[in-house]
């Protein structure tokens, strides 16, 4: 698992707002954020749906603030219109951390199996730029995402597998 002190401090330095819908793959990360709420420089808003989180992030991006969104890949099915008729249409830089459910660790969770299989083609058909967030080079990965977001004024998705931001 990524060191949460370092991860959250990096997020605080580079982002202004965090919003999303939880996944157990983010459990430790989200409890850490919750425990820091009073002293943190970052605003965290829990959303009722993934597209609402994208909308909240859009409001931040439209005032030159840097937003971060987190969700399960089940939420990918909920954000199609928020991306195509809002974020991509208005060309806004938003970073999305998306848990990669439906891989072999999720054998007992059939609810994730179909999205797990089509995850990459789904992201591809939305023309989304994406790669994995890894424990080893997470900082380089997010830095690179910020560069792509700035240069292309577009969202970037980082896929988060089990154990990267949770135990």
């Amino acid at each position: 698992m990524i060191n949460l002190d370092e991860f959250v401090s990096f997020i605080e330095d580079n982002f202004d707002l965090v919003s999303g819908v939880p996944c157990s793959y983010f459990k430790e990360f989200l409890s850490y954020i919750a425990s820091q709420e009073d002293k943190s420089t970052i605003k965290h808003l829990s959303a009722t749906r993934e597209d609402e989180a994208i909308a909240i992030a859009t409001g931040a991006a439209l005032s030159k603030k840097q937003p971060l969104v987190y969700m399960q890949n089940s939420g990918l099915g909920n954000i199609g219109d928020a991306l195509t008729s809002l974020v991509q249409l208005y060309k806004l830089p938003i970073l999305i951390l998306m848990s990669y459910r439906g891989l072999k660790e999720d054998n007992d969770f059939p609810e994730h199996s179909i999205m797990g299989k089509i995850n990459n083609s789904f992201l591809g058909s939305l023309n989304l730029v994406y790669w994995d967030l890894n424990e080893k080079d997470w900082e380089v990965s997010i830095q690179k995402a910020i560069t792509v977001m700035d240069e292309q004024s577009s969202p970037v998705v980082l896929m988060v597998k089990k154990g990267v931001l949770s135990q």
Binding site: L17, D51, A53, A55, I56, T58, G59, L86
Partner: peptide, 8 residues
């Protein structure tokens, strides 16, 4: 949602 992000 967009207004909420802008407001906070």
């Amino acid at each position: 949602g967009v207004g909420l992000g802008l407001a906070v």
